[in-house]
Amino acid sequence: MSETTAAPDAALAADIDALCRLTGSFTLRSGQVAPEYFDKYLFESDPALLLRVARQMVGLLPDDPDGTGLLGGLELGGVPIATMVSSLTGRPALFVRKKAKEYGTCKLAEGPGVEGRRVTLIEDVVTTGGAVRDATNALRAAGAVVEVVVCAIDRSPEGQDPLADVGLEVRPVLTKAQLDAVS
């Protein structure tokens, strides 16, 4: 986890935990099997809760001194959050696919061009950072400057940055420890 985190919002943590924490046996994108799962689509489909998360994310965004920065929402869960944060800030959004389309424009990222522009990634949940790492590498290959990911929930082990290997700072609204504290 990074030094930059949202001020703990116990009410938001309690509401997300109550709505989104599922227990059972769940296989994560990384292949890990977890005894619990945070179903982020439950908060993302709730307009009031999504707005609360997006408002917290606004304070975590890096400065955009030249006004050319983009918010890169990762498919699928980062897209509604990036759209809401874009609406709140006036910063343009970019929608980053898991892989480029094989038809039409064949783009990996839908929206404004990324070459030479700073892209702040927006993600729902980060555990090992696999999807964020893939998007970062692809966007950098396209000429983007990617240094920060702002996420709703950081499930990575406390005190660890799962994306340090690609030089990416993780800025979470909530951590697993904060959610555990209210459950």
Rank of each mutant, 00 (worst) to 15 (best):
G129A: 08
K99L: 04
G159H: 03
A13L: 14
L71F: 14
G129W: 03
V148A: 11
D154Q: 02
D15G: 11
D63P: 12
S183H: 13
V126M: 02
L61C: 12
C106W: 05
V125M: 06
E75W: 06
T136H: 05
G77S: 15
A181S: 14
V119W: 12
K40D: 03
S25Q: 11
T120M: 15
C106M: 10
L168P: 06
V148I: 04
G31A: 00
A131E: 00
G113E: 14
A164C: 04
C20H: 04
S87Q: 10
L74N: 01
I81A: 11
S30Y: 06
A54I: 14
L179A: 10
D154T: 01
G143I: 01
V166L: 01
P157M: 02
C151I: 03
L163M: 01
A144M: 06
Y37I: 05
G31H: 01
R118Y: 04
R171K: 03
A14H: 13
G111N: 11
G116T: 12
T68L: 08
E147Y: 00
M57L: 10
T27C: 00
T128L: 03
A7T: 08
Y103F: 15
A18K: 06
P112E: 08
S86V: 06
T105D: 11
A131N: 07
D15L: 02
Q160I: 01
G67M: 07
G69E: 12
